[in-house]
Design a binder for these strands. Structure first.
Lengths: 322, 322
DNA sequence: CCTCCCGTTGCACGTTTGTGCAGTCGCATT
DNA sequence: AATGCGACTGCACAAACGTGCAACGGGAGG
């Protein structure tokens, strides 16, 4: 059955315009005449073509030009590093924005049909989700990695919005994880974890093909919003400090050497155990800003990461560390 | 050893500019300030980045929008068809130009390291070679498929120029085939074919990963330049007619049903037997203009082609044929 | 040291492209 | 039929971009 709806027509036009523009190097003016629409419409068609994934633009270094820092990070931590060019003069917000754009592209590049994609939430992930370039896939699933909180701080939406945008971009089913980020009583969690509906999701988490996450840095000057969102109390902070925590991934905490055993708070967290996380074939960590240094380094030491996306300054710091 | 030569520097800058422009959506002006060069230089850097393969732009149909004609050609002849959008009002030259641009992109997409790429020559291939987007590969070889003539008709260069451009684009070694397109005496060919140096090349031809070629159409109104370049005489023409030839690939002739047995002229041709050609895993045929209809159809019937690149009008004709 | 040559740069200009706005069309609701 | 709504179009203007040209600079040869 053919699709003659206006949406199908639009896509066909966009496709044709894109071919003429990107492959045959026509100007929009020429294309406009060829499709008998106005030049402006062609401009809009091309925009549509770009962010609906009809055209796909890749920038890749010829092998002999992979950045020095990237190589060093690769050698030192065994990760594929993606260093985002960022002049040091940018504000934190701009820097994050740029890192997120790069990361979003990478995600769209990696995700494919029939994949289970684990997605965490947080301010970084929020920005990333807003820059995803759409790429229609089939039978892929977006899986929420840890329980959500409803945060309304500036620029952060409900975690479900983040997931929704991922779902949108890949035409994927979204699998929510309807539990709180932290439980008060570990026993409650354990009970809930025995529920059939929850078990199904936990099981899904063990079969992820990709996990995408940022890192929290609880003891940096600018704490991740997990720490200001009212999730944790004074006592919890003290507990983290005692356990020598340097960061978290999906609300699961770890130390500078990447270890997470016997960290009190983890017994109450809704996130996946690090051992589980490490079994995911591709684990993409996105971080921007020097204040994430300790957290990211811990995540790297703990082998939680296979693909690292960071800004230049942070990359340098990581490469030089130790 | 680091490469600090000006060429290496240029590439690094181009890479960075490309990332900023295509991934981070910066304007050239911004990028110029960031690299402290003029905006014009950024424009030039981006041009360089595009046609040196640092950025790679793909236009692909979402599966549910593959053209109708493409599907029909696929069903009918068992080829992957690439129909190039071309309004019917174009001149033959413009049409060819557009088809060639598309084809060139496809070639660059298919060719990879360690591949042997067979290349024919002719007016179509000449235009194609001029639009190749560079893609650095290693250990790949460009192999000339049939003996060359030195033609100076408009727009056609020596076949070696075509090969040279292929070599350039892929950083590949170029393997010339220093024999005439047609021999006067089959025996001369057979003798030459026993030469060690020639045998090495013939053997290479049997191990091609891709073959790229146009088709000749000897009996259309506008004959392929093979037929006007002085390669063939009156008697030869008669012989072709008697043998019911409709076209050629790499100066090897075939009939409407794709057969090539007992075609007199083939015993004197320097091109590969069709059986040999058919063993190449990917065989890309590029043709533009309705006058190629008979030739292309023969090539398709003879299963000489796995990937077909044609303009819209020709595609329609082929799809409707039979 | 000078000179010439070749490759690179920025400027200035014309061209090409993005976008706010107001007008139009189709469609569903009253 | 009238009304309202939303999606889409073309216009007009501003922003962004490509390129011929002249000036610059650094290296080889005299």
């Amino acid at each position: 059955m053919e699709d003659f709806s206006s949406e199908g027509r639009r896509t066909r036009q966009a496709l044709r315009a894109a071919q003429l523009y990107y492959v045959q190097d026509q100007t929009m003016d020429t294309i406009a005449r060829e499709l008998s629409v106005s030049r402006s419409s062609v401009s809009r068609l091309l925009t549509h073509a770009r962010d609906s994934g009809i055209v796909e633009i890749n920038v890749s270094a010829p092998d002999d030009h992979v950045g020095d820092t990237e190589k060093r990070l690769g050698d030192r931590y065994g990760v594929r590093a993606h260093v985002v060019p960022t002049p040091d003069t940018l504000t934190d917000v701009e820097r994050l924005e740029r890192v997120a754009m790069n990361a979003a592209r990478l995600v769209s590049e990696f995700v494919d049909s029939h994949m289970n994609v684990g997605v965490a939430w947080g301010s970084t992930m929020s920005v990333v989700s807003r820059h995803l370039v759409s790429r229609p896939t089939r039978h892929s699933v977006i899986v929420q990695m840890n329980g959500a909180g409803n945060t309304q701080s500036t620029g952060i939406e409900y975690s479900s919005d983040i997931l929704q945008r991922f779902g949108q971009a890949f035409g994927a089913r979204v699998q929510q994880f309807p539990v709180p980020a932290f439980f008060d009583d570990p026993a409650t969690r354990d009970a809930l974890w025995r529920e059939r509906s929850i078990r199904r999701l936990l099981e899904l988490q063990t079969r992820l093909d990709i996990a995408v996450f940022g890192v929290g840095s609880p003891f940096s000057e600018v704490p991740s919003h997990v720490y200001i969102g009212g999730y944790l109390g004074q006592a919890d902070y003290r507990s983290l400090k005692e356990d020598k925590v340097v960061g978290d991934v999906a609300t699961v905490f770890f130390r500078a050497d990447g270890s997470s055993d016997n960290i009190t708070l983890n017994t109450r967290s809704s996130g996946p155990r690090l051992a589980t996380l490490r079994r995911v074939p591709r684990r993409m960590c996105i971080a921007s800003g020097a204040q994430k240094f300790a957290g990211v380094r811990g995540a790297l030491e703990g082998r939680l990461v296979t693909d690292l996306v960071v800004d230049e300054a942070l990359a340098r710091k990581l490469a030089e560390a130790r």
